[in-house]
Computed example of a mutant assay.
Amino acid sequence: MNAIATPNAEQAQQDIVEEFAFFGDWTERYQYLIDLGKQLPPLADELKTEDYRVHGCQSMVWLAPSVHGDKLHFQAASDSAIVSGLIALVLRVYSDRPAREIVATEPRFIEAIGLAKHLSPTRSNGLAAMLAKLKAYAAATLNT
């Protein structure tokens, strides 16, 4: 048994909710989002292609899946600091999970931390597009 257990998607969402509860206002939360985005590993230029581009985002966003055993791993990047932070949250919940768990997991953390009320309509649309693309990748692996 591993000494360090990776939390499941629900636990990852709960961890995010608890982290955001530490911040008193949205200025601090946005700064935390930006800081999370800065910690994303860089995305290789060969993955920044039209195939991996997430449409529906005002900023440029790429989401590249890969399959490792029964789990899907996602790499992603954006040219926007706040969107990069959103990507970091999404990857914590959905990356390195079995496809079935990805498809079944609703992104409760978005509402729970108040993101739904504090994102511009274009960022909300972009986040929804990113989640839809991620779930579509997972669903496709279930059908192969």
Rank of each mutant, 00 (worst) to 15 (best):
Y94L: 03
W62F: 12
G69E: 04
A64R: 13
T105K: 12
V61N: 03
L89S: 12
H118D: 09
V83W: 05
V103I: 05
Y52R: 09
A129C: 07
I87T: 06
E46V: 15
P41A: 12
F109Q: 00
I113E: 03
L43E: 08
G126M: 09
W62I: 06
C57A: 09
R97E: 04
Q75K: 08
Q39Y: 05
I87Y: 02
C57L: 04
E101W: 01
A138H: 12
G114E: 10
R108D: 14
A81L: 10
K48Y: 08
V61W: 04
R100F: 07
S59Q: 07
I87F: 05
L127N: 08
A138L: 12
L72V: 01
L134K: 05
L127Q: 07
Q75F: 10
L63H: 06
V67K: 15
I82D: 04
R53W: 00
P121L: 01
A76M: 11
T105P: 03
E101G: 06
K71E: 15
S78G: 01
M60V: 11
H68E: 10
A139S: 13
Q39P: 02
H68W: 10
H118M: 08
M130N: 13
L131C: 09
R100Q: 13
L115Q: 01
L119F: 00
S120C: 07
A129L: 03
G85R: 08
A81V: 05
S84H: 09
E111R: 03
A99T: 07
S80Q: 02
A81C: 02
I82F: 07
A76F: 14
V90M: 13
V67S: 14
A129M: 01
K71T: 13
L63S: 07
A99G: 04
V103M: 06
R108M: 11
I87K: 02
N125K: 15
Y137M: 02
R108W: 14
V54K: 08
S80R: 01
M130G: 11
M60T: 13
V67L: 15
